[in-house]
Amino acid sequence: MSKTPAVRKLVTCSVIAALLCLGACGIPTSGVPGSVAPATPPTATLNPDAAAVLGHALIHAASVNDTAEVGRLLEAGAPVDYRGEDARTALLAATRANAIEAARELMEHGANVNAKDELRDSAFLYAGAAGLTEILVLTLEHGADLRATNRNGNTALIPACEHGYAETVEILIDNDIDVNHVNDRGLTCLLEAVTQGDGSQPYQEVVAMLIDDEAGLGIKDPQGLTALDHARRLKQSSVVQLLESAGSPSQATTTGSTTTGP
């Protein structure tokens, strides 16, 4: 059973009080006997043990979207970019849980939207790949690196195209992300949208947006096939029509083959 807000607050206060009693936070006093520490964040002098306790608590609070607890922990000096299991930060934990308000709170406190975990995912990259548009927009507002790539050499745009997340694709294109980036498989977002898609309405919207943004229609995959070649092979008639109308070349036209008359 999850803790009630009152219990969570009590737990947080108990942890913080214990750290202070042990001198773990290292908060300086004014130097006058009996004086109390000034009401300033102790982050700068937080020792490793205290950072670990508060950091892990912050990651958990973020993952369950407990914004109030996130705020209390940050005020207590929890390192906003503390890395827990798999080098995952609280912001990444919040993003993976689509905990929008916790993610917002962390970003407003300076969380690094480009910090990557051991899988080379950042909050920005994961939000794009998973179609989490609200968090994606927040990361863009807080300095997301549009050129960043994950473990597969994908930008945030490529998996969004692969999954047919039209709204996500539109957001990224509007922010001038590179539509012709080639991933480790040798594929662009257009090639991924066709080869991994089913030609349904969301994929048609994605392909249309990529065409409008001047995606390279003649770029070939490692087998020498263009997006149009794949669309024809997969019998995605509506996508074929979009690509043909845009003047997309096929393998035959890009290899210089000709048709002779009788």
Rank of each mutant, 00 (worst) to 15 (best):
Asp221Phe: 02
Asp213Ala: 15
Ala193Thr: 08
Pro38Gln: 08
Leu119Ala: 14
Glu214His: 14
Gly23Lys: 05
Ser245Gly: 09
Leu140Ile: 08
Arg96Lys: 14
Phe124Asp: 01
Val15Leu: 14
Ala37Tyr: 02
Gly128Leu: 00
Thr195Asn: 08
Thr188His: 08
Asn180Thr: 14
Asp221Ser: 11
Glu101Lys: 13
Thr149Val: 15
Glu75Trp: 03
Gln236Ser: 06
Ala68Asp: 11
Leu138Thr: 00
Ile135Thr: 06
Glu205Met: 02
Glu85Tyr: 09
Leu243Val: 13
Gly186Thr: 12
Ala52Glu: 14
Ser248Asn: 09
Cys161Pro: 04
Val53Gly: 01
Val64Met: 05
Gly71Asp: 15
Ala144Ile: 00
Ala246Val: 08
Gly23Cys: 08
Glu192Asn: 14
Thr195Val: 13
Thr95Val: 04
Ala115Asn: 11
Thr4Met: 11
Gly23Val: 02
Glu170Pro: 08
Ala61Asp: 13
Ala39Gly: 01
Leu217Tyr: 02
Lys235Thr: 14
Arg151Leu: 14
Pro41Leu: 00
Ala148Lys: 03
Arg88Leu: 04
Leu190Glu: 07
Leu225Val: 01
Gly247Ser: 01
Leu19Tyr: 03
Ala6Thr: 10
Arg233Asp: 12
Ala115Pro: 10
Leu91Lys: 12
Leu172Cys: 09
Val64Thr: 15
Gly256Ala: 10
Leu54Asp: 05
Ser63Phe: 04
Ser14Asn: 14
Ala76Glu: 06
Gly218Lys: 12
Pro79Ala: 04
Gly186Arg: 07
Thr43Met: 03
Gly31Ala: 08
Glu108Lys: 14
Thr226Gly: 06
Gly143Cys: 01
Ala129Ile: 06
Leu22Tyr: 09
Asp174Glu: 15
Ala111Ile: 03
Val11Phe: 01
Val32Lys: 07
Tyr165Asn: 02
Pro28Met: 07
Gly197Leu: 07
Glu214Ala: 11
Glu108Asp: 13
Leu225Lys: 07
Val182Arg: 09
Arg185Trp: 11
Ala127Thr: 06
Val53Phe: 02
Cys13Met: 12
Val11Ser: 13
Ala111Arg: 05
Ala103Cys: 13
Glu244Arg: 06
Tyr203His: 15
Pro79Asn: 01
Ile16Thr: 14
Asp221Val: 09
His163Ala: 12
Thr253Cys: 04
Leu242Glu: 02
Val182His: 12
Lys235Gly: 00
Thr168Gly: 08
Ala102Arg: 08
Ala102Phe: 12
Leu157Asn: 03
Glu167His: 03
Thr12Met: 11
Asp213His: 15
Glu75Lys: 15
Gly224Glu: 09
Pro33Gly: 00
Asn183Val: 07
His60Ile: 08
Asp198Arg: 15
Thr149Phe: 05
Asn112Ile: 04
Gly218Cys: 04
Lys235Val: 13
Pro41Gly: 02
Thr95Ala: 03
Arg185Ser: 14
Gly110Ile: 05
Val64Ile: 15
Asp174Met: 06
Ile173Arg: 04
Gly131Pro: 00
Ala39Thr: 13
Leu132Val: 04
Asn154Gln: 04
Ala231Gly: 05
Ala160His: 05
Arg232Tyr: 08
Ala144Tyr: 02
Ala102Pro: 12
